[in-house]
Amino acid sequence: MSECDRFELLISEYLDGELQEPEKTELESHLRKCSRCRRVCDAFRAISLSLGEEAAPAGLTEDVMAAVRTRGGSGAKRASKPGKSWPKYLALAACLMLAVLSAVRLSQPRAPAASQPDAQPAQFGVAAVPGDLEPRDAGDDSSLMLEDAASQDSADGTDDKYNYNAESCLPLPLEEPEQVSLLRISGRAEAELTDPECIAAVFELLCCVEPTQQPDAPASYTLAYESEDGSGTLELWSLDGELLCSDGAGAAYEAAGSEAELLELIG
C-alpha cells in the first residue's frame, strides 16, 4: 500500500467527520502537497454533494396514512395492499360477535346476553386483530416483496435486533391451520370456534416469535382442534399477559399475540 493509498482511506473518514487527531492534521498537510489525493478528495466530495436529500413526492404521507388507517392494529405483523382488507374485517367483525355471544353463553349460561357488558368490546376487537388474515396472494407484488424480505431476514440470521417479522422461526403451530374445522378452547375462557376466519385469527396470534422453555405451571388454556388430517391439542400459557404456546411434545415458544388479544377474539 503506497502512502497515497493509505491517505485515500483517511480522506473518506475525514469527509465523514470520523477522522481523529493526529491523523487529521497529517492528512490535511498531505492534501496541501499532493494533487492526486486532492483529486480523490474532490471526487468523494462531489459524490456526497450529489447524494443530497430529495423531497418526498406529494401524497406519500396521505397514502401511507390511508393504508395504515384501513389496516388498523399496531400489533399487526403482515402488511398487504390497503383496501383489500375491508371485506375480511367485516367478516371478522361478524365472526367476533358470534364468538363473543357463544362464549358468553358457554361461560355464563344464565346471564342474559343483553346485560352482558363483555359483548360490547368485541366490536373494538376488530381493530386490534394483529395481522392480515388474507392468505398469501402470489399475484400480489407487495406481499411477494414482503415475503422475500421475511425470508431474507431469517436466511442471513444477522438481524434479530431488527427482526420485524415474527415468522423467522416456526411460522405456525400447525402446518395447515386453514384445514382446521373446529377449535375448542378451554381453561381460563371457553369457546368453540367453527368459523374459518375466526380460527385463522387465533392461529395468527399463535405465530412463533421466539423458542423458549416450556413453563412448569399447568397450562392456562388448552386448544383442541379438529382438521381433515386428524385432531390434536395445543397448550397455552399466559405469562405477564404474553402467550407461550406448546405443541405438547416439549417444543414451546413465545407467541406473537397476547392473552388480551386472544380473549378479544374469543370473547
Binding site: 401511507v64 395504515v68 399496531s74 416483496m145 414482503l146 420485524y164 417479522n165
Partner: peptide, 16 residues
C-alpha cells in the same frame, strides 16, 4: 418508501 412506512407501522411492536 410507502412500503417501508407501512411495515414500520405494522412492526412497531418489535422496535425496542
Amino acid at each position: 418508501a410507502q412500503e417501508a412506512f407501512i411495515r414500520a407501522y405494522n412492526s412497531l411492536g418489535s422496535f425496542r
